[in-house]
Computed example of a mutant assay.
Amino acid sequence: MATGTGTYHQQLAEQKRGAILDAATRLFMADGYAGASLARVAQDAEVSRATLFKQFPTKASLFEAVVTHQWAATSDDRDTPEPGDLARGLRTYGRRYAALMSRPEMVGLYRLVIAEMPRFPQVAQTQFETGKMPFFRELEDYLRAEHAAGTARVDDAVLAASNFLGMVGGYAFWPRLMVVGWDPTPAEVEHAVDEAVATAVARYSVA
């Protein structure tokens, strides 16, 4: 019985956390970092202020959780490729990155960071360190593994990862911030990923 009770309380806590993150995401996007209040987050999430402050005692900690949550949005079907097939591995990372960056919430998050950066530089630092960097480092590690396996020659994994994600993001994400109506189809995004993969394979693959 105790185990069942513990599981129930854990599930309830996870549901409340999810409701808080969803409400916080909406409010950050709508009102900006400065305008979003923790009291309003608690109200919209239908939780007590005590519950909110227990999990997120500051606005900064809540924003960090929102960023982490958004970057982990596709982690349920996450496939970490093994070295040995550079094209397959890059395609896995490229498609995952394109899917993440194409989400409306991610576009809104970046717009928020750009708008708030002059007044709150920590929001940009949070977005970079807790959001993009873990993904970026995972791709770096994969490229180093391919290099160690002898299937690719990647002398600078940081530059290689940056160039590859830049090719994908240059089509799938960045125009969304500036070009009204930019909304490529899934097939067009997949084609852009495949072109980035082909370019990287031509540069780094060992025949």
Rank of each mutant, 00 (worst) to 15 (best):
M133R: 15
M133S: 10
M133K: 15
M133E: 15
P134S: 10
F135N: 05
F135K: 04
F135Q: 11
F135I: 06
F135C: 01
F135L: 12
F136C: 03
F136D: 07
F136L: 06
F136P: 01
F136H: 13
F136W: 07
R137T: 14
R137N: 12
E138A: 15
E138Q: 14
E138L: 03
E138D: 13
L139M: 09
L139P: 03
L139T: 06
L139F: 04
L139N: 07
E140M: 15
E140C: 13
E140W: 02
E140G: 00
E140A: 01
E140L: 02
E140R: 13
D141A: 15
D141T: 15
Y142S: 08
Y142T: 07
Y142C: 08
Y142M: 08
Y142V: 09
Y142E: 03
L143T: 05
L143S: 11
L143W: 08
R144C: 02
R144T: 05
A145P: 06
A145Q: 11
A145T: 02
E146H: 13
E146Y: 09
E146P: 13
E146G: 13
E146I: 10
H147D: 15
H147F: 01
A148G: 00
A148S: 03
A148C: 00
A148I: 00
A148Q: 04
A148E: 05
A149G: 15
A149M: 07
G150E: 09
T151A: 09
T151P: 08
A152W: 09
A152I: 11
A152T: 07
A152N: 12
A152K: 13
R153D: 14
R153W: 10
R153I: 06
V154C: 10
D155S: 14
D155C: 01
D155P: 01
D155M: 04
D156C: 03
D156S: 04
A157W: 00
A157Q: 01
A157F: 00
V158Y: 15
V158D: 14
L159M: 12
L159R: 08
L159W: 06
L159N: 04
L159V: 04
L159C: 01
A160F: 03
A161L: 05
A161I: 01
A161F: 02
A161P: 02
S162Y: 06
S162W: 09
S162P: 00
N163G: 14
N163I: 03
N163Y: 08
N163T: 10
N163M: 12
F164E: 02
F164A: 02
F164N: 01
F164C: 03
F164K: 02
L165S: 11
L165Y: 14
L165E: 09
L165H: 05
L165W: 04
L165I: 09
G166I: 06
G166L: 07
G166H: 10
G166C: 08
M167H: 11
M167N: 05
M167Y: 04
M167Q: 10
M167C: 03
V168P: 05
V168T: 08
G169R: 05
G169C: 11
G169N: 10
